[in-house]
Nucleic acid binder design. Structure first.
Ligand SMILES: [Mn+2]
Ligand SMILES: [Mn+2]
Ligand SMILES: [Zn+2]
Ligand SMILES: [Zn+2]
Lengths: 143, 143
DNA sequence: CGCATCATGAAAGTGATTTTCACTAACATA
DNA sequence: TATGTTAGTGAAAATCACTTTCATGATGCG
């Protein structure tokens, strides 16, 4: 899993004529071994413990590269911070977001996906991406 | 329609012990007679023509009040600006957003809404709100 | 190695939104 | 109507999450 994503990233770097650097490898390892839906600041703080010399800007730039290479997806859950999640090959899911504790649960629903395509088609739209987020209280926060 | 929303807002203002002001009424009228999905800046610029003395901060504060009172909904379509749309009593819709020209099309789909509730229930979630946005190219932009 | 490029980190810049603060307007009450 | 209390306003400063700049450092093909 990690190996596969590291390879995808390194291949992307090479194909784009970019360089393989110590920082990129450190950030990649930290990202791949972290929880999903990490904000840039969370990842930066986590990194800073072992690597106090890695700059904020480098983390931003590198996460963007991850997204470009296809191993990460940029997400906005309305809390003002961009979050990045891991992306598996050909995988897709949507999210339940707890407004109480911030927990993020992933789900897949083929029927909804199909209906979305139908809606788009009915309006002559060619869908590129979509965002489906259900906000509410998770089982624990409902008390 | 406008009358109803104005009443809802004035009732809300009163109930909260807030004050009815000239600026709020001006902004309310401008909002209600504007296109849907207006950004704060667009509304501010529109207002400034007739009311050059109304401050930016007041427009921000007032639009938030509209959302709190239930006559408006805050939206983020990923272009970095918050937009506000009109909300009718008990009305709900989702959006198709054209990544080419920025057009926003509204749609309703009861089946999707039902499936969302099922997904939430299956995870013990109590849904408060949700966001479903389909991004792609509109019929015109597909050329 | 040599060196053209790309990458990095610190700091400055951006752009949207929020806060501050001195002043003004609402409105309940006298 | 005059007054007092509280909320609202506008201009400007501050914040926040990023993005860019720029001088310096690392990478990697030949
Ligand atoms: Mn996810
Ligand atoms: Mn709408
Ligand atoms: Zn929760
Ligand atoms: Zn279009």
């Amino acid at each position: 899993m990690k190996r596969v994503k590291k390879k995808i990233f390194h291949d992307y770097i090479a194909k784009q004529g970019l360089k393989s650097t110590r920082q990129r490898d450190i950030i990649l390892e930290a990202f791949l071994s972290s929880d999903r839906h990490l904000s840039i600041e969370e990842l930066y703080l986590k990194l800073r413990a072992k690597h106090p010399n890695i700059g904020y800007a480098t983390v931003y730039r590198t996460l963007k590269l991850f997204a470009e290479s296809g191993i990460a997806r940029e997400m906005q859950f309305g809390d003002g911070q961009t979050r990045y999640e891991h992306v598996g090959e050909g995988e897709h899911h949507d999210h339940l977001v707890c407004t109480g504790c911030g927990a993020i649960i992933e789900f897949e629903n083929e029927t909804i996906e199909t209906l979305q395509k139908e809606v788009a088609a009915a309006h002559g739209f060619l869908i590129q991406t979509h965002k489906l987020e259900l906000y509410g209280l998770c089982a624990r926060c409902r008390g």
